[in-house]
Amino acid sequence: MIRALRARNFSKRPTENTPPVKPAPKSVRRTRTRKAKKNITAAKSDAEQAKKKAQKTAQPVRLNVVFYGNANGGADVEMQELPSTSQHPAIVPVTLPRALNQPPVSEPSEEAIAASTGPSYCGQPAAFVRDNLESSGPRSLRTLCSVVTQVDSAVLPKELDIVVNDPAATDYPTHMLAVYAPVPKKPENAPATWVPPKTDVKMYPVHSLFMAAHCAKLGPFPPSPTAFESSPASNEPRSITLPVRPLCLPSPSTFPYLLHYFYLRREEVLFRAFFPCEFSTEFVENCTSEEEIRSLATHIGRTFNPSVILKHAKVIHGVWQNACALGAFDDALWMAIDSAYEVIINALAIGTGNPRAVYVAKSPSPPMQA
Rank of each mutant, 00 (worst) to 15 (best):
P276M: 07
R8E: 05
A336K: 06
A112Y: 02
N286G: 11
L160V: 05
T33C: 10
P173S: 10
D171N: 09
V269E: 04
R265E: 02
G351S: 03
T57Q: 11
S253I: 06
S136N: 06
T57E: 13
L100G: 07
A216D: 03
V92F: 00
T15D: 14
T57R: 14
T15K: 14
R6A: 13
T18K: 10
P225W: 00
A114G: 11
D76R: 08
T352S: 12
N9C: 13
F67V: 03
Q59T: 04
G353K: 07
F274V: 04
P138S: 10
H207P: 12
A192I: 00
A347C: 06
A24P: 06
S109Y: 12
P184I: 00
P93D: 01
N235Y: 02
A340F: 02
A192K: 10
T199Q: 14
H175N: 06
N17H: 07
V183E: 14
M176V: 09
H88V: 10
P138W: 00
G301A: 07
N354K: 01
N70R: 13
Y257R: 15
N235D: 14
P306A: 03
Y261V: 01
P187W: 02
F228C: 05
P182Y: 05
S230Y: 08
N305W: 10
A328C: 15
I337G: 13
R13W: 03
P367M: 08
Y180V: 00
A99H: 07
V163W: 00
A192S: 15
Y121Q: 09
Q369H: 12
L259M: 11
P119L: 04
P23E: 00
V151W: 05
S307D: 02
D152V: 09
R30P: 13
V28K: 15
R245G: 05
T226S: 15
E292Y: 10
V129R: 07
C287R: 09
P97K: 07
T149Y: 01
A7T: 03
G353W: 01
P367T: 06
T117M: 15
P355V: 03
A71P: 14
P367H: 11
L348I: 04
E107P: 11
N9R: 15
L333W: 02
E110W: 06
S307W: 00
P367Q: 11
W334G: 11
A323V: 04
K314P: 06
A58E: 00
S120L: 11
R62Y: 03
S239F: 04
R8N: 13
I309N: 08
A43F: 07
